[in-house]
Nucleic acid binder design. Structure first.
Lengths: 339, 339
DNA sequence: CATCCCTATGACAACGTTGACAATGCGAGC
DNA sequence: GCTCGCATTGTCAACGTTGTCATAGGGATG
């Protein structure tokens, strides 16, 4: 049973004895169609197994009903949660979600919007670091593609977004470690192309200064927000003769990496080494010990961002920023230093 | 700088002094265009900031270049890995991935293809349990949407897919527990609407019988392949006076749930209770103790399935099944029973 | 009873591209 | 020099919808 030449609106019209326009009206739930005709059209459509052609509709209406999610590091649970948030908002709506992974936003910023254009998207949700890329925001505007951003830190007036205060959150979790009694705290930094890496570092340093501690550059190890990079960075830190008593990882994935590294070095967490993360992503709960972290409401931010895109597409609503709260989540991966 | 009336192919043609057809040829890399004209057209397009209209193209060519991924349980790392596999295969190609989460395939099978139609997809990758749904396969064929299936177990001739031998894999991991010395083994079953739940159960029972053990129905707890359902099921099992010495969870998510339940019951894993999973998903590595499981090459299967969809779309290639190997992955969550 | 307005319906062009086919021009073979 | 073939370019319709505007009829209004 190979499909035979999909029926068109013309066929339905002919079969029901009405004009194509009337069929169109029926299928779009428009008023000004008598019930009898409405029924007749539906019956004819059913009989012919008619289904509207989305592309033709998209062409004439100039909207594809496709919304994109642009992100960089596909394996992270951060992105998974973002996606779930966007899908949650889009559920039941006519919009579909297209996922657009970009290998390196920093390197390919110029090509990103061309890619989105070639997908015919109506709007996009930009995850970091694309959410902070001036080039992308600019191209998007001139391409007429609506957007909303996740955790933007710069150009806050350029486009709407769901924000979170990285600096304060980072300050709080660093203060938590200091309050526990830690004085020698190392930092595993995130991908430097993400603005939040700097913001979180700033928060840490504020907490350090408030406690009269110095921010030692030799205690900062670079990472990329990936589990592997966290593992590597922790290995470098723990191999030193004067290893720190605690590690501030700039996200949970890297904290998990550090956890694995500690395990391999024979260090008990939190007894021999405290580790804290950032984000409160899924992995923080699964890991053992479960990771003490700062909750970023990623899911909610994604819902909000998707909502902003939809709002622009439907009503052309005013563009705004929506602030989201963080919260310290104390679990088992940090304790007072043993020595 | 609001965008001004996107330039069309007609504008470019006029500006370059050639016909629209020639412009079309240039943008599609077709032969039979002289270099001088090719250059002239490109320059004109550049000057006008022309970008082809994907929807018009899609309409006339009858292909949207959209491929869908249909799945049910969005939070699972299984789906995340599937998605990464599909994206990996599609990278650099002209196809885009649209994610189609379905709340309950069993309940909404009739509406699924309508949803796919309304997204204008050219093809889809079906994850379980959609991959085993006769209604969906049938509707898909009559809608002319190509598909490939992940881990199909029924109607193997109906459509191509990437298969894995659930029965044998399940038999192997059950045999592993038995070899360790376990005699009282409980089972946490997966979502009964997924055919693999039955297949894995069959594999377990084969191993039991080979060892002269009975498959006790009162040792089988229902689950849904989700972490929470695994937690609940394990709680029920561990609350009993005669708790088992080992648990066979039908996937890793549920094994993680069981792990958390054991922890809350004050049971050490693997000392007091052995737990094994299925899939070798991401969480199995992160959990502590890391979960002993059977590796299903989910990523590779997704790559293969995506490949099959693309192949059908490009060449109309012959439809086949591709078998993928499993492998026992021994980690720390199972050991010989202590008593 | 004439007028007006509103509902129900249809005719036709437009959306921006590509496919089928025609036309042109130029060099080669005879 | 004439014909043939091929490379190059163009013309026009088609893809399947929806938007705009026109038209016919049927009360309500005066």
């Amino acid at each position: 049973m190979r499909q035979q030449k999909r029926a068109t609106i013309v066929d339905v019209g002919r079969s029901a004895g009405v004009s194509t326009k009337t069929v169109s009206r029926v299928f779009n739930g428009e008023p000004h169609v008598s019930d009898s005709i409405r029924q007749r059209v539906r019956a004819a459509a059913e009989a012919l197994n008619y289904h509207p052609n989305v592309m033709a509709r998209a062409l004439v209406q100039r909207r594809s009903n496709l919304i994109g999610l642009v992100y960089e590091n596909p394996s992270s649970s951060y992105v998974t949660e973002l996606q779930m948030g966007v899908l949650h908002r889009l559920r039941g709506e006519r919009y579909r979600l297209v996922v657009i992974p970009i290998e390196s936003v920093a390197e390919h910023a110029g090509e990103v919007v061309a890619l989105l254009r070639s997908a015919g998207l109506d709007g996009v949700v930009l995850a970091p670091p694309a959410s902070d890329d001036a080039r992308i925001l600019n191209d998007l505007a001139s391409a007429g593609i609506r957007c909303a951003r996740i955790a933007p830190t710069r150009l806050l007036d350029a486009a709407p977004g769901a924000t979170v205060d990285d600096v304060v959150a980072a300050r709080e979790i660093a203060a938590y470690l200091i309050d526990l009694g830690h004085r020698d705290i190392a930092i595993i930094k995130g991908d430097p192309t993400h603005a939040s890496a700097e913001a979180r570092l700033l928060g840490y340093s504020q907490a350090f200064h408030a406690a009269g501690l110095a921010l030692r550059l030799d205690r900062i190890e670079p990472g990329l927000f990936t589990r592997d990079s966290g593992y590597e960075a922790a290995m470098r830190l723990l191999a030193r003769p004067d290893r720190p008593t605690a590690i501030l990882a700039q996200n949970d994935e890297m904290a998990v990496g550090a956890l694995i590294a500690a395990r391999e070095c024979g260090l008990g967490v939190p007894h021999d080494l405290s580790i804290v993360g950032f984000d409160d992503s899924d992995v923080a709960r699964i890991a053992w010990p479960a990771i003490t972290t700062v909750r970023q409401p990623v899911f909610d931010m994604a819902v909000a961002a998707a909502d902003m895109v939809v709002a622009q597409l439907e009503g052309g609503l005013a563009e705004t920023l929506r602030a989201h709260d963080h919260a310290l989540v104390v679990r088992g991966s940090a304790a007072a230093p043993s020595a």
